[in-house]
Write a protein that binds this DNA or RNA. Structure first.
Length: 665
DNA sequence: CGTCTCCAGGTTTTT
DNA sequence: CCTGGAGACG
């Protein structure tokens, strides 16, 4: 397909697209057409007959990767299945799946997410007698990450946890499990220990690109640098003003490090914003100007001034949500805005709740995206744990999770005895169960032994079937029936409706595995691959390409890289934006929160609504709240206090829908 | 020894 | 609100 690049891109964008060799630093402000440049750059490569196989593009989220592949496909009309476009973690998994044996692991490893990690640390802490009320699993987990990433070290404050860390590492290994940090750090170790393997990757990936470079960690950058240093064809794309993941090890100073690592690099700045109205951009620029540590750049918009920013204070979170729902309804009816052009952004996940309720009541279809909430739901975690145990019986943590869920008569004492046996035989818990099941000798009482036996038989049955790679979804369905998970849910929840809702979640999990194995693009679907994939993915990766007119509801973090005609930023309040928990950490947190607010503002194309409440329910209690201090950083003259819009009555709504029907018929 | 019930306390953001 | 843990009960 012929592409007229000159026509589609401005001079700087064009230069970025056509600079294929050598190191390239692309500073792309919000809305400056970054995604456009990346996709056209890769399209341009393909037109130049650069093999897909030799291109590696690392993105920050699965969603971004998917969207970019899709767009490249649209532009070039080529299949892009040979292109490596994925997140750092997914790339790490690809490497480890191929080479983990070299490091003494099986190919079929398990990935531990945050919950698994916490469970393991807790387990070990209990064993060491370190477990108490005051033990903060979150900070401990952070510490362990920091140690692995070499951004923390042992000192007098944390030395007492060094043994625990060693335990943690040792147990991960025994369970054939990797945590998220391992997925980055172990490939680096692999490359350092085996230059011949590194060489393969260097030879293969002759063109590498890192998107959202400001949010990469030192180690992530190191991993890609190892591959790129053979040819120096490395392009990094970023914007220091949008660095919002430092709590996860993101190190925007990588931008400065890049300049040192690759002297003679080309730098291109994209400063023209094509997304937002002048007003919105003015607000964003005014806010971000309060940050001290940033690269100078001037983002400008050639678009029209647009409407002022609308500010609304509601009595409480319910009133706020209802105001938003009402406003959306009237925007749709009076201005013909379709729902998918509207985004509602919040600082934290739980703030979506009242909004969901209001949208539901107003009959406005919506889509909550981002957040790990789906895979973190207890019922999903339980079923996924079954799958993980079937895939890898060495995985004690997931086995412990489901060993007696639903209740099957293997209680606390039985588990202790089994763990003791495992210790004695130095084998996994599952092996200990096998031994117990097969031995006549009575270690546990008859009833319990019987239960263990049944569990082992059950697991073996599914192990056999789910390894054939066929009909994973129907096996999963029969598994949930077999354990009668629904009955368990009914038992756990007084209200049948709750149990039903939870069971529906399981249904969508089963559907997702079905879609996964039926997708022809998944060349080699397997249980492991599926499990690795979902551990690394968030909820919205489940429902792919849901092309529908729905309002988008999400956290600001999840909104990064997206844009909407109309954006609502809800709950713009003190202690929420900036978040009280982030401020206690360290001094520069305030700047990161401001960047986050900046990201929120710059998602909007035409109109921005900012809302906050006077009081809000917090853990059951009603608390008075104040507006976010960031609001004062927006110039007064572009703010208008929202007057309550005339409510769209049923008559008007009826007229609107009648017209719509006429147009359609 | 296992299960059920009740109660306190807790979640910033995500791979 | 929802989860997990402690304590009572069978």
């Amino acid at each position: 397909m012929q592409i007229n690049y000159q026509e589609l891109l401005n001079p700087n964008q064009l230069k970025a697209v056509q600079t294929l060799t050598g190191p390239l630093l692309l500073l792309a402000g919000a809305g400056s057409g970054k995604t456009r440049v990346i996709t056209y750059r890769i399209a341009y490569m393909l037109n130049k007959y650069i093999a897909q196989k030799s291109i590696l593009a690392v993105t920050f989220t699965n969603k971004a990767a998917r969207e970019m592949s899709k767009r490249i496909h649209e532009i070039t009309a080529k299949r892009v299945s040979q292109l490596t476009m994925c997140t750092f973690h997914a790339f790490g998994v690809k490497i480890l799946r191929e080479w983990s044996k070299k490091m003494g692991y099986k190919t079929d490893f398990t990935i531990y997410d945050q919950t698994d990690k916490h469970a393991l640390i807790r387990e070990l802490a209990v064993e060491r007698g370190l477990y108490s009320e005051s033990l903060d699993l979150y900070s401990l987990s952070d510490l362990f990450s920091g140690i692995k990433h070499e951004r923390a070290s042992w000192d007098e404050h944390n030395l007492m946890y060094e043994q625990l860390y060693n335990d943690y590492q040792q147990h991960l290994r025994a369970y054939q499990a990797f945590d998220f940090d391992d997925l980055i750090v172990l490939p680096i170790k692999l490359f350092n220990d085996h230059p011949d393997i590194l060489d393969k990757y260097q030879t293969r990936f002759r063109y590498v690109l890192i998107d959202e470079f400001q949010d990469t960690s030192i180690k992530q950058y190191e991993l890609i640098k190892l591959i790129a240093r053979a040819h120096n064809n490395i392009c990094v794309v970023g914007d220091d003003d949008q660095s919002i993941y430092s709590w996860r090890g993101a190190h925007y100073e990588n931008l400065f490090q890049f300049e040192k690592d690759f002297p003679g690099f080309t730098e291109i700045k994209l400063e023209q914003n094509y997304r937002s109205s002048k007003t919105i951009l003015l607000a964003a620029n005014s806010v971000i100007a309060n940050n001290q540590k940033r690269k100078q750049k001037i983002l400008w918009s050639g678009l029209k001034p647009g409407e002022p920013i609308s500010l609304y204070q509601a009595a409480d979170e319910r009133a706020e949500a209802e105001y938003i729902a009402r406003t959306i309804r009237s925007l749709a009816i009076r201005q013909g805005i379709t729902y998918d052009n509207i985004g509602i952004l919040v600082r934290t996940n739980h703030l979506t709740r009242p909004l969901e309720e209001a949208l539901l009541n107003a009959n406005i279809p919506y889509l909550v995206s981002g957040g790990q909430s789906f895979f973190n739901r207890k019922e999903i975690k339980d079923i996924v744990s079954y799958l993980k145990v079937i895939a890898n019986p060495d995985d004690n943590i997931n086995l412990l999770r489901i060993i007696n869920i639903p209740r099957r008569g293997i209680g606390k004492q039985a588990i202790i005895s089994l763990l003791e046996l495992a210790e004695k035989e130095s084998c996994s818990l599952y092996s200990a169960m096998s031994i117990t099941a097969n031995n006549k000798q009575a270690m546990l009482n008859k009833k319990t032994t019987e239960a263990v036996k049944e569990f082992v038989t059950f697991t073996e049955h599914y192990r056999e079937h789910m390894f054939t790679k066929k009909k994973l979804s129907s096996h999963l369905r029969s598994l949930t029936d077999h354990i009668d998970y629904f009955a368990y849910l009914m038992l756990q929840h007084k209200k049948e409706a709750v149990a039903r809702r939870k069971y529906l979640n399981i249904e969508s999990l089963i559907n997702s595995i079905g879609e996964y194995e039926d997708d022809p693009d998944n060349l080699d679907p397997s249980l492991f691959d599926y499990l690795n994939r979902i551990t690394l993915s968030s909820r919205d990766d489940l429902k792919e390409d849901e092309i529908s007119q729905k309002v988008n509801l999400m956290t600001v973090h999840a909104a990064k890289g997206l844009e909407f005609e109309i954006v609502f930023i809800a709950a713009c309040e003190q202690n929420i934006f900036p978040h009280s928990r982030s401020l206690s950490d360290n001094g520069s947190a305030d700047e990161e929160e401001r960047r986050l607010f900046y990201v929120a503002l710059t998602r909007a194309k035409n109109k921005l609504f900012i809302t906050y409440a006077a009081s809000r329910r917090k853990m059951g209690e009603i608390v008075e709240v104040l507006a976010s201090p960031f609001l004062e950083e927006i110039p007064q003259e572009i703010i208008e206090f929202a007057k309550e819009e005339e409510i769209v009555d049923n008559e008007e709504a009826g007229r609107y829908f009648d017209q719509l029907k006429k147009r359609l018929s």
